[in-house]
Amino acid sequence: MSESVNVNPAIRSPSLNEQAYRAFRHRLITLRYKPGDYLNTAQVMEDLAMGRTPVNQAIHRLATEGLLQIIPRKGVMVAPLSIDDALELIEVRLVNETLCAQLASQKVDEAHIIALRELNQQIAAASEARDREKMMLLDREFHQVLAEIAGNRRLADILSVIHAQAQRFWAMTLSSVSHMDEVIAEHDEIIAALAAGDTQRAAEAARAHIYSFKRALLAT
């Protein structure tokens, strides 16, 4: 006799609020919505094909993450970008992403290594096709997997916000083919360090990855 399984729809697919948040955040990260621009809520609703409630929920969530600014009596503005913000973000990334790499090196297994290698191969293919948005989506997934391997939920939440903010700056550097090649090579080194279970090497690879981002940003 077969056993029926009751699948919770909320687990199977994200809520409308979550869908609106993800779609809105993607447009901010990829700079479709430009830093400093004021956004019309009705236009955003049309862009996302979403109702007012999920869009408003997304606005407030993204404001707490520093991607939007809610200006009294004026509306919603895309958070501006500045080099000072970028340098502060780099300092925060150095601490948190190094810790993530160290924790991941202690908990990684072969399935994780396979998943990371496959993702980096897809990033390389997107880079070769000059598909910037796909590369950014895959890079986000690569870092999400790293955070999951590290196994610290609070750290994963922090890294999700940090990475979303960093990707807005990163989007400005992706016209450089050499930088895209560097990113892929740096990912390979992180994977190799994890596969070797080498905590110090993993930390060094994470730091090198962030310093490469800094160099590329300052060169733009």
Rank of each mutant, 00 (worst) to 15 (best):
V78Y: 12
A101W: 02
L68M: 10
E88P: 01
P72T: 10
P80H: 08
Q121K: 13
R93Q: 01
K107N: 12
Q121L: 10
A115E: 13
I123K: 05
R93N: 00
L116A: 10
R93P: 00
L87T: 15
D84M: 03
Q121C: 04
N96K: 14
Q102I: 15
L81K: 12
P80R: 05
A86Y: 09
I114N: 10
I70L: 03
H112Y: 13
K107G: 09
P80D: 03
V76G: 00
Q69I: 07
A125I: 08
L116D: 12
N120A: 11
A86K: 03
I71A: 05
E118G: 05
I123S: 14
R73F: 07
E88K: 03
E88V: 01
R73A: 15
L87S: 08
L116K: 02
R93H: 06
Q122R: 06
Q102G: 04
R73Q: 14
Q122P: 01
A104Q: 07
I70G: 04
V92W: 08
G75N: 05
Q121W: 08
R93K: 06
P80A: 09
V76K: 00
I83Q: 10
V95K: 09
A115R: 04
L89M: 12
Q102C: 00
I114T: 15
I113Q: 04
D84Y: 06
T98Y: 03
A101Q: 06
A111R: 09
E110T: 12
R93Y: 00
I123Q: 14
V92K: 14
R73G: 02
E110D: 15
I83V: 13
I114S: 09
V78A: 12
P72N: 03
Q69G: 02
E110F: 07
P72Y: 04
Q121N: 13
H112V: 04
E88W: 06
V76F: 01
V108P: 00
A115M: 03
D84Q: 04
V78N: 01
E118W: 02
I114H: 06
V92P: 00
L87N: 10
V92A: 05
L89A: 03
Q69C: 04
L94W: 01
Q106N: 13
A125W: 09
Q122C: 06
Q102K: 02
I90H: 01
C100M: 11
A111W: 15
P80Q: 06
V76W: 00
T98M: 01
Q69D: 04
L116E: 10
I90L: 03
G75C: 09
E88H: 04
